[in-house]
């Protein structure tokens, strides 16, 4: 496992880096081989006995992956905003939920699901822009008050959303071309006549995963290959210096905040189609974003991806193998990461 910025962070490791990298490569290859075997080979009886059944295990892993995709969409906005502005946006869950409601309304009204997704992104991006301009710019440099303001906003927003959309649970309907289940190439069992039983999986969830991967790659490209991304990275490292070298920091802040909020809104529509939309989801996704960025490291997109992967998998596998203690598993992961690496897996020490 070698990450793009692990080398430029520590230039002195480069000389001895090869052997270490090779070592990690071997570990990664071994892990990949074990995973491939777990996924494709028919399981011996003892493994079935330990892990319930191959079907349960594979479903848990796939659910974990798709959930990780959703978590990544929510948490990437959160981590971007934090990394650049040192602004913990505790209203991020509310942005998710608002995006989901708006997506529901628009999709229902126009009949086009994609329009709902677009509306979720655009409207929330505008909301984020307004929040940044009206609220956060006034409190710049005061971390605690900014955070307190976001708490206040989340309370008011949750209450107003409850007033408008009541406590009902909504389900955003997925269009036909995304609906249904697909057969995956994973054999879960053999019938008595020797025919293989393949695992089927909801197509839409795979789409969620694909969307998350595409957006993740897009974000990475934007941050690493474009001029605006360069400015954002510079701002994460040293805001004052960026400002002094002539970049308009406020415009960059506004762009990042709009992008982060828009991603939360988009995740709301995408997630609301896979799961459901109800009051209380805001807290759930706020918790998910918090844990993901604490584990993955603040301000790092790669970290958000790794964190989302770990937390999504842990949550779903925990759900299957230790029901009711699944939250504890998530919590333990967070504590272990904090104990070993307080700044998170990909975070930089301040």
């Amino acid at each position: 496992m070698s990450f793009p910025d692990s080398t430029d962070r520590d230039p002195f490791a480069a000389s001895s880096g090869m052997t270490r990298r090779q070592g990690w490569g071997v570990v990664a290859l071994l892990a990949a081989a074990v995973l491939l075997w777990l996924f494709f080979a028919p399981w011996p009886a003892w493994l079935n006995a330990v892990l319930l059944s191959k079907k349960a295990f594979l479903s848990a892993v796939l659910n974990g992956l798709t959930l990780a995709g959703l978590y990544f969409l929510v948490a990437s906005g959160f981590t971007l905003v934090f990394g650049l502005m040192r602004n913990v946006n505790l209203a991020h869950g509310s942005l998710y939920l608002l995006g989901a409601y708006i997506g529901y309304e628009v999709a229902n009204w126009t009949g086009y699901w994609l329009l709902g997704v677009a509306a979720g992104f655009v409207v929330l991006a505008v909301v984020g822009l307004v929040m940044q301009v009206l609220v956060f710019r006034r409190l710049e440099g005061d971390d605690l008050r900014q955070t307190l303001v976001t708490i206040g906003i989340s309370i008011v927003a949750a209450d107003l959303m409850l007033a408008v959309w009541t406590g009902t649970t909504y389900q955003i309907l997925v269009p036909d071309w995304l609906d249904g289940a697909v057969k995956t190439p994973f054999v879960t069992a053999y019938r008595s006549n020797g025919a293989a039983v393949f695992l089927t999986y909801p197509f839409y969830r795979l789409v969620v995963l694909a969307v998350a991967i595409v957006i993740g790659i897009g974000l990475w490209l934007m941050l690493n290959k474009t001029r605006i991304g360069m400015m954002i990275r510079a701002g994460v490292d040293d805001r004052e210096m960026l400002s002094a070298s002539g970049a308009n920091v406020h415009v960059i802040f506004a762009i990042v905040f709009a992008l982060g909020a828009g991603l939360a809104g988009l995740a709301g529509v995408v997630g609301g189609s896979a799961l459901s939309v109800a009051p209380g989801e805001d807290v759930r996704y706020l918790l998910a974003s918090l844990v993901v960025v604490i584990v993955g490291g603040m301000g790092s997109i790669t970290g958000a991806a790794i964190g989302a992967l770990i937390i999504g998998l842990a949550e779903q596998i925990g759900l299957v193998y230790f029901p009711t203690y699944g939250v504890v598993l998530t919590f333990i992961i967070m504590v272990v990461v904090l104990a070993i690496r307080p700044q998170g897996i990909m975070g930089r020490s301040q």
Binding site: L144, T147, L286, L287, I294, G326, T330, F331, A339
Partner: peptide
């Protein structure tokens, strides 16, 4: 183990996790 604004996040994560745990267990 961390400082400043992280404390709010970590304690919020702890509080939320405790709530879900108490509710499910």
């Amino acid at each position: 183990r961390t400082e400043g604004i992280y404390t709010i996040m970590i304690t919020l994560a702890i509080a939320t996790a405790a709530f879900y745990f108490a509710q499910q267990n």
